[in-house]
Design a protein around this nucleic acid. Sequence first.
DNA 1: TATCTTGTAATAAAATAAATTACAAGATTA
DNA 2: TAATCTTGTAATTTATTTTATTACAAGATA
Lengths: 143, 143
Amino acid sequence: MQITSKFTIAVHVIALLYFFQEDTKVTSGFLAGSVGANPVIVRNVLGNLKEAGIINISQGKSGISLARSPEEISFYDVYRAVGCIDERGLFHFHENPNIRCPVGRNIHLAMDEKLQKVQDEMEESLRRITVAEVAEDLGKAME
Amino acid sequence: MQITSKFTIAVHVIALLYFFQEDTKVTSGFLAGSVGANPVIVRNVLGNLKEAGIINISQGKSGISLARSPEEISFYDVYRAVGCIDERGLFHFHENPNIRCPVGRNIHLAMDEKLQKVQDEMEESLRRITVAEVAEDLGKAME
DNA sequence: TATCTTGTAATAAAATAAATTACAAGATTA
DNA sequence: TAATCTTGTAATTTATTTTATTACAAGATA
């Protein structure tokens, strides 16, 4: 299992905006060209990012742009925006434990809190990284 | 995306062994009955756990049993044993960034280390939880 | 008004996960 | 030793999820 590529696509898109929004009218086609994914996928990601208040979308000459600076965009913000994880959580619990078995009847209860903690800590890790750090590394590599 | 249910199945199986191995000849059929999954799925999980040195498998009257105590089995041990995450890692990187774009060319490099750190920290969280804690909570719930 | 772009629905294709069927081989025990 | 039970595993199918594609209406601009 893996976290959907919508997440890395979104970070890639934000980095593109950071480097190109000043000089270029950025469109979904331009972004899709660098990402190497279908423009509709990119447009969906863009819709998610807009809804989360991370970017502005305009069909006019201003094009697509960042709504806030990369320092203010954490990996967690992006991960939430693109809906990496739904209400079912990070772990997939097997569906049909036998309730006539004392272990089967209680295993969900006994594990849920622990699995939630792992997920919470993972999300905490994502909060500690910002897109600014990616932009910085990109800046160095692009020199 | 979600981590495969093989993980929760494996923890469930280990808990069953803890509570039943003394009194019962535990077979894959017995385990599958409590888990509510196909016996072949359970047998595959059992094979993984055996390979990791977590359980013993015998076709004789001793049946399937724990090779070490629940205190010595962390969630990480189980997660590794059942191969939740392959060499590609927790995050799915989009496959075709455009190498003619300076951002597309370097985005992988700029993100990899950060994503790896998130994964490492998630695995560290898994190391801090043992199956003994699950067994303890089960014991309480089963009273 | 002609053109470009976004938003979105509907499908389709690809990848992954889980279930199922089938059966050979190991171990037991009667 | 023969009959039975169980594991290990391959092959196949089904279900689910992810990604791509096609199509087009509607917004914005020049």
